[in-house]
């Protein structure tokens, strides 16, 4: 076990070289609906129980299923209204269980990235070969269902091994949503490839605000607006990223949709300054235009540690 992941070097926010998003926009905004499947009778993992209390968990399971049956359509139609395309954080087994939802996303030209097979199968204890099998399955399943080659990864239920980031880089993924250290894209120190840590945010994630912090819908809206305003202000100096990660079983509840719409309305009123994009588009723009300048500036700060993730220099 290591004290630090060594997946990135220290890079203070102040004085970084400027990032400009396409069209000289200041903030790249993306929405990441998590489209998930939680199993009714998941196997247990020695490191984590899939459901609190007992298996099965009828209330928790059925609330997730509500997201799939009711919430997603609501959310999709709301995003349509504001011309926003989602970047779907997908438990890929959903392609088998509920292909209708996938079709709805394809019609809207949404992007897909992998969020593992099921949200009830964790990475803990997997060998590199087993984790590779999850990635193969992810790439193959999404390609068969949608024709898209996935480029992004968010480990299922945010569970990792020391190999996760190296493996996704090796499999030609472009971005990871697993790290929360920054409001700008960050180059990661993987053995191969150019893997970007893309700001995904836990702080404005509806699981955190609703389930963990217990905020009410108006407070969530207030937080989203303030978060956006501050990042837009800072984007003047150097482009920032704001992501709203969503779960239809939470934000798609009837009592939460109207306040959430107020937040979207506020954000979408700033189209002169905001690049509405998908995860892959932001990652690619960063890799093509800013990877080298970022690496040079990080090195110039004089505190790089060498090595790569979990292989300390």
């Amino acid at each position: 076990m290591h004290a630090t992941p060594n997946l990135y070097d220290y890079w203070p926010y102040a004085g970084r070289p400027k990032i400009e998003w396409p069209g000289r926009k200041k903030l790249a905004f993306w929405v990441a609906p998590n489209i998930e499947f939680y199993e009714f009778m998941p196997p247990t993992n020695p490191k984590r129980q899939p459901w609190p209390n007992a298996i099965p968990n009828v209330q928790q399971y059925s609330q997730r299923d509500f997201g799939n049956r009711v919430g997603h359509l609501r959310l999709m139609e709301l995003l349509d209204k504001y011309n926003l395309r989602g970047s779907v954080s997908l438990n890929v087994a959903l392609c088998d269980h509920h292909p209708e939802i996938i079709e709805d996303c394809i019609k809207r030209n949404w992007e897909f990235f992998s969020h593992g097979i099921y949200n009830t199968r964790y990475s803990y204890g997997l060998t590199p070969a087993q984790e590779q099998a999850v990635l193969d399955d992810s790439i193959r399943t999404v390609e068969a269902a949608t024709g898209q080659r996935i480029r992004g990864y968010l480990a299922p239920a945010l569970t990792h091994t020391e190999d996760t980031l190296d493996l996704i880089a090796e499999n030609d993924f472009w971005y990871s949503c697993d790290l929360f250290q920054d409001d700008q894209p960050q180059p990661l120190k993987t053995k191969t490839g150019k893997l970007v840590s893309l700001p995904y945010s836990l702080e404005v994630n509806d699981v955190i605000t609703y389930s963990v912090m217990g905020f009410d819908p108006d407070r969530y809206t207030d937080i989203l607006k303030r978060h956006f305003d501050q990042l837009l202000l800072e984007g003047e100096k150097s482009g920032t990223v704001m992501c709203i990660p969503l779960h239809a079983y939470l934000v798609g509840q009837p009592h939460r949709m109207k306040p959430f719409e107020d937040a979207l309305k506020h954000i979408c009123a700033h189209s002169d300054d905001v690049w509405f994009a998908t995860g892959k588009e932001i990652a690619k723009h960063f890799i093509d235009n800013y990877w080298d300048q970022s690496m040079a500036d990080i090195a110039a700060r004089g505190v790089t540690t060498g090595g790569t993730g979990f292989r300390h220099g």
């Binding site: 076990m1 290591h2 992941p5 803990y124 990792h160 091994t161 929360f180 836990l202």
Partner: peptide, 11 residues
Amino acid sequence: TPYPDLRHFTV
């Protein structure tokens, strides 16, 4: 969370 808790480390 269990090691490696990249989530809380990076937050």
